[in-house]
């Protein structure tokens, strides 16, 4: 379990939406074997009786008053966009033929 093959890394890269060269996949796979062995140590002490902590603060459902406050203009919101058109973000084709 504590090692990853080139193909497993390729699948993770696909899930994470990162194109990777074959060379990169192979070298990451070998690094992960070492890293996973080191991080797998958490399993030694994580007994069933220990509750998980996801966050340092015991906060739940923090609300603020529902009041309208000034926000970005469309120009400001689009100022960093790689492409925009008619006050909208212009994006590449989302629905492919295979879909």
């Amino acid at each position: 379990m504590s090692s990853l093959s080139r193909d497993e890394v390729a699948n993770l890269a696909r899930l994470a939406r990162i194109e990777m060269s074959d060379e990169e996949l192979v070298s990451l796979a070998s690094e992960f074997t070492v890293i996973l062995e080191a991080v797998a140590r958490v399993q030694e002490v994580a007994g069933a009786d220990v509750a998980p902590t996801s966050h340092p603060l015991p906060l739940r459902n923090v609300f603020r008053p529902d009041v309208t406050t000034p926000s970005l203009t469309p120009e400001e919101a689009l100022s960093g966009a790689p492409a925009s058109e008619e006050q909208r973000f212009r994006v590449p084709q989302i629905l492919g033929e295979e879909a």
Binding site: M1, L12, L15, V39, A40, V42, Q43, V45, A46, G47, V50, A51, P52, T53, S54
Partner: peptide, 19 residues
């Protein structure tokens, strides 16, 4: 975080955080 490994890795790490 992937299915099948979540408990062994992320879940265990969260328990260590409690400890």
């Amino acid at each position: 975080l992937s299915s099948g490994y979540y408990d062994a890795y992320y879940g265990s790490a969260q328990k260590v955080r409690t400890l």
